[in-house]
Structure formats: C-alpha cells, structure tokens
Write a protein that binds this DNA or RNA. Structure first.
Lengths: 217, 217, 217, 217
DNA sequence: GATGAATGAGGATTCATTCAT
DNA sequence: CATGAATGAATCCTCATTCAT
C-alpha cells in the first residue's frame, strides 16, 4: 500500500466513468464498512446487498483493500482542501473576529461531515488499524492544516483579539478538542444531532478559554 | 453476549486463581488485540505467542468473544469505580478549587490509562464495533460518572468559583473534551507521552473557558 | 476435444486470413504458454499483453482450449510432414551414407525447432497433460515416421553400411535418444545453443554404437 | 520459495511423525499431481479423495506449494545420494568393466524410479515450471553427479577399456541419452515396462559408441 | 469486428471451535 | 489440565466465458 497506489486509486476514481453497478458497490461498501467495519464485512455480503456478483467487485477494485481506499481516499483528499477553501473564502475573510471565524469553520466542517456521515466513520475506524492510511492523513493534515493555521493565527493576532499563547500550543489544543469531539460524537456515539447551541457552547468555551491572560508561561 | 454473560465472566475473572498459562494468554491477548485489533488477531496466533495450545485457550475461555470480554470487562469495571474513589478521596476532598480538582482528576486518570495502555486501546477499539460493550460502558459511565459529577458540581458551585453554565452542559463539554483528547492521543496517535505542561494547558483552557460570564443563556 | 475439432481448427487456421489482432493474439499466446504453461496463463493476461479485449479472443477462438490447439496443431501438422519432405528430398537421397543422412536430418530438425522454439516448448509441455493431444501426436508420428523409417532403413541396409540390429530396435533407440535429447535441452533446460560439434558427437556416438557387431541377438 | 524453505520442509518431513491422515494426503497428492499436474489438481479434490478436510491439508502443509515440495524434495534428496551410494558400493567397485558398471547403474536407477513412478513424474512435470526447483535439482546433480563421474571416469580409464573422448563430453552425452530416455519413456509415454533386453540395447549402443576411435578431435 | 462490463463457479487459504488422547 | 489433530464454514480472490452495445 505505497503512496503510488494511493495516487493510482485516486486517479481511477476520478477519471473512470462509473457504471450504476459501480456506484451501488461503493454505496454499499460505505454503509457496511461504516456499520460493521472493514474486517467484519465480507465481500460476499457487499456483493449480495449491492446486487452484483463478487466477481464484479474484484474486476473493478482488484482487492478488498483497494476497495476500501477507493472509498476513503476521495474523502480525505477532499476534507482538508475544502477546509482550506473555506478558510480562504470571501466569507471567512470577512470574518470580523477569530471567534466568528472559528464558529463558521466549525459549522462548515460539521456540515461537511454530516453530508458524509458514513465515510467519516469508515475513515476514523480504519485509520486506527492501517498505518499507511494514518500517515497519509497526517500528511494531508500538515500540508493543508498547518499553513492555513499560520495564516489565520497571524491575521487575527494582529486584531489583538486574543491570545496569549504561542500559536503551536493553540493549534494543538484546538486540534485535540475539535478532533476529539468529532470522533467521540460522530463515531463512538454515532450521533450526528449536534445543535447550533452546542456548537455555540464549544466556541464560547474555546474562545473564553483562549482569551484569558492567565496561562502558564 | 447478554448482560448475564458479562457478570459470569467477571465473576470468573475475579475468583479463579489464574495459572501461569492463563496469565500468559491474557497478556498476549491484550498485546495483540491492542496492536492489531480483535478481528485481525487469530486465536492460533495468540496460542503460538503465548506458548500454549489452542485447545487450552478454548478450555479456559470457551470463545474468542469471551476471551475479549475477559480482557475488557475488568478494566471497565475498574476504571469508573477507581475514578469515583479518587473523586471522593481525601485528597480531592481537600481540593480547594474546582480547577485544582480537575487537575488532579486528569492526572490521576491519565496515570491510570498509562498503567493500562494496551487495555485502554483494546477497549476503545472494540467499543466502536460491539454495541453490547458500548451499552455496558455507557451504563457504567452513567452509574458512576453522573452521580459523582452531581456531588462535585454541587460542592464547587457553592464555592461560587465559577461557572455560569448548567451542570449538564458543563458535563457534556468536559466529557467531550477529555474523552476526545484521550482517544485521539492514546489510541489514534498511540502516543502516551503527555507532559504536565500539556495537562496544564488543557486545564487552564477549560477553566478559563468555563469561568467566563459570556455564555449564551 | 474430439478429432473433428482438431480438423475444424486446423482448417480455420489455414484458410482464414488472419487480422493483425489475431496475429498478435497468437504470438502472445505462444510466448506466454511457452513461458508459464497453459494452466498458469489467464486469457485476461493474453488479452492485456496482446492489446486486445478478452471478448476478441473468445470471438475468434471460442475457448481457451481451442486457442491452445490453434497454436499447437499447425506446428504438429508441419513437423512430421516437413521431416518427411526432408527425408525424401534430393539432398537426402543423395546422402552417400546413413551417417550422412542422420547428420543432415538432425541438423534440419534442430533448425526447424530453433525457428519455432516457443511452440515446441508449448507442444511438449501440454502433450504431457492432454491425452488427446498425445494421441494426435503419436498418430502423426506413426503415420509419417514409421513408413519413412522403413524407406530409409531399407535403403541404407542395402548399402550394408551397418547395422546388425532389427530396424524396429534401431528405431526405438534413435527415437528415445533424439527425442529425449531434444526435450531435455530445449524444454527442460530452455537452452537452444547447440553447436555443430555437439551434434557431431551425438551422430558419431550413435553411428559407432549402431555399427558394432557386438549386439545381443 | 528460498533454499531455507527447502531445508525447513525437508526437516519437517523427516522428523514429524506422520499421522494416518497425513500419509493419506501425501499418497493422494502424489497420485493426482502425477496424473493431472499441480496446476490442474485442486486442494479440494485432494482432500475429498484423501478423505480429509481441506483444513487438515493446510494445517499440515500450509500451502499447496509446500505440499508439492513435501512430495518432491524427499525424492530429489534421495535420488542422487542413493545413486552415489550405489556407485561407491562394493558391487560397483567390483565391476570389472565400465560397461558392467553402466549396466548395473542403469538397472539400479530404473528400479529406483519404478519404485517411485508417480513421484518421478511429478518431479519432471513440475521442474519444467518452477525455476527454484530446477536450480535445486541441478545443484544436487552437480553436487553428487559430477564428483562421482570423476571417480568412475578415472577408474575405468586406467583400465584402458575405452574411450577416446574427454570425460566432460562423455558425461554430457550420457546425461542427455539416459535423462532423455527416462523422461520420454516414463513421463511422456507413461510406460514403465522396460525390459532387460532394452536396457541391454541401450548399454550396448552406448558402450560401442563410446569405444570407437573415430570421434572428431 | 471489437469492446469491456458482468458473471458465477471454483480455487487457495484462514479460522474459531471440537474432541480424543 | 493440556494438547494438537481435525474440521468445515467462510473468506478473499481468479478465471473462462457471455452478452449488450
């Protein structure tokens, strides 16, 4: 499962026109992997529910493993760039405060995850076991997340809005809090009903927490 | 996997004097399940590494599933009670502030997890897939966590130290933040090196965040 | 795989004008079957390397088995007749001795095999497994080989050059020695570099061996 | 399939006490592989005919490939050493002539092959496809065959019995003739009825052939 | 004539589990 | 108690073959 394979699979996924059967396979795969996990889902079951023969699955995806990647990689490749886009978009540029920005970003990412509930669950569940996937994910995280964060941190620091912490410590805190929250809620508890009020609570707690002057030096 | 089975296994685990072979089996099981997950670990592999025959494993634990429970349940049954004990202990009673209490609790739980790294990973990884386990865990969480929280919240609220939020919203926030942080760090990133400084950051952010008067009504 | 099919395939092979794709298919088939054997070569692989679709192969040859025959039969049908032609040709008629004849025949057959290296390998490798093919081959051997041998034996016996053995025993000996040598060298060792000196050694040994008066009665 | 694996398999084959089922598996495997070849024999068929479950086969031999080796290697490891033993044995030492020696050796090897008809067929048929096996076989051939040949050639050369050829050319000729004869008769024609008279013919032809003074320089 | 998507039967292999010793 | 041989259902995967376009 080298990086080349990652690229290959992604390229195929994007270029090849998908037949109805292929779409059905992917849908079924996502649903089953999200519900029971990769290891507990047999290709026979996928085939049966998708209404195709097992042969068809392997004709198109070669390997159960590559089928998994065909499901996961497009999401991963989309999650961070689309986040970047959001961050750099007009709306976020117009955000008058870091708090406002945080609120919008959170809402946006939650909306994105809600649109891809099952894939998000698949990604989290499988990243735990597949090291290459984990590396791939972190690579994206660093490629997109860190520079963006640099931008943002810089921009709003000038606004003297906040925050008496080094940006790397802020970043670490926010990553833990938001990442952890997402995983606990959306994967562990399988609960995507998150109200605006709750989001607001998180934003408030975070912002208030960051704004304080009381941090250890 | 009914609740009765849970009780039976637990009873056995506590009463039966474990032979050397049994100990070796459990150790090996924990290590392998933590590393590769339940579904990706065969009983044959466990037997080989533990230096026993496959027959022996099934003689003692009957089922691969019951073997898993023999590993997980004692930990789960211990995590919350020992937390409760900590909360109610002299030291925490003497905590002069909610912040102080939070700091001690966090450190204590992290220490506990560090002592049981692999089991913690096994529990988290399997809770994702096994609904009965998830229910069992939540049951414990509610049985021990909520009442304790009631105590604590009440106690320190009287101290008027903080916090202008309803306790249930506080509880939800703290659960997400701490639970999420634990899972991301200890399972996803498989990294147990968490410094006191980092803990302090979390505590500060949380406390500062909670203390604010600015929350939405 | 009845004899009728043999005839049909052969007829098709000879009459039908072969398209470029068909030629490519046959070439690829020969190469792959020679290298890895019939059973270890998939039609998918042939299609891919030949640059055609799997459908095309089956359109033309109907069956993997018939594809094999399309490769093998023309060679078999050619090997013995062309040998007969050689035997009866002017040059061999002019051979002044049995030894001379043997030398020329050997060289000629080796040249023929060298020109059809891969097909020779395919034929030998598959004859081992397919009984119908084996029968077909022996049939040809007997149809062409034996009568020719009669001619030759008769002709040179009159020359009283040699040989104090019944012709059938000579035939059996020569068949084993030459057939065996070809198979060991060209198939087992996959080595077609056979020098004239080596051929000469074989001829000498054979002739010297046959000429002796010392054979058992 | 490295050489280590060869050693491992051989070691297991020699040490492990074989159960009745294991013996039955090996017997069935030999018969089927000899008849239809490795690639055309399914493990399911072996299991069915051997009267065991497929699981049992894989429990003991791990892989279809290792099953093949478990059948082939002991034969190969035995064929050449037992030949060496024969060559060096008292009887052959007493052989008064090279011809006598050749006669005895041939008879002995043919007897050995007759006792292991099917295995001999399996070995020849699979050596064609498996390169590692081919190397292994040649390695044995060189390890045992060449030095022995040295001994023999030297010994009987002194007897001035023969032979006006360099020993390496003699060796090459004899290898081709005898090896080829064995393969054609025992594998291609699946015919093990070889009379003493025929053996005598081969010996005579060979010896007469070698003795001649007429070889090219 | 050519394609390639689709098939389903069959292939090697794994695995939890049982049981006689 | 402990062993390990034996099982057979299930798993991933391959392949020759068909057929609609």
């Amino acid at each position: 499962m080298s990086n080349d394979i990652f690229e290959t699979i992604l390229a195929q996924g994007l270029t090849k026109a998908k037949t109805d059967k292929q779409k059905k396979i992917i849908e079924t795969t996502i649903t089953l992997f999200a519900e029971k996990g990769y290891a507990n889902t047999s290709t026979a079951e996928i085939a049966k529910i998708a209404g195709v023969s097992e042969g068809t699955i392997f004709k198109h995806y070669g390997t159960k493993d590559k089928l998994l990647l065909s499901v996961i990689l497009p999401f991963v490749k989309d999650f961070f760039p689309s986040m970047a886009k959001e961050v750099l978009s007009e709306t976020s540029k117009k955000a008058t405060s870091f708090e406002q920005f945080l609120r919008e970003l959170l809402k946006d990412r939650i909306a994105f995850i809600k649109e891809n509930k099952e894939i998000f669950q698949v990604v989290v569940k499988e990243v735990i076991y597949k090291d290459e996937l984990k590396q791939e994910l972190f690579a994206h995280f660093k490629e997109y997340g860190l520079p963006l964060w640099g931008n943002i941190a810089e921009k709003f620091k000038e606004d003297r809005e906040s925050i008496h912490l080094p940006t790397d410590r802020i970043f670490k805190l926010l990553s833990s809090i938001f990442g952890g929250t997402f995983i606990v809620r959306f994967v562990l508890m399988d609960n995507f009903d998150i109200s605006d009020d709750e989001i607001e609570d998180i934003v408030q707690l975070t912002m208030n927490g960051l704004r304080s002057k009381e941090f250890r030096k």
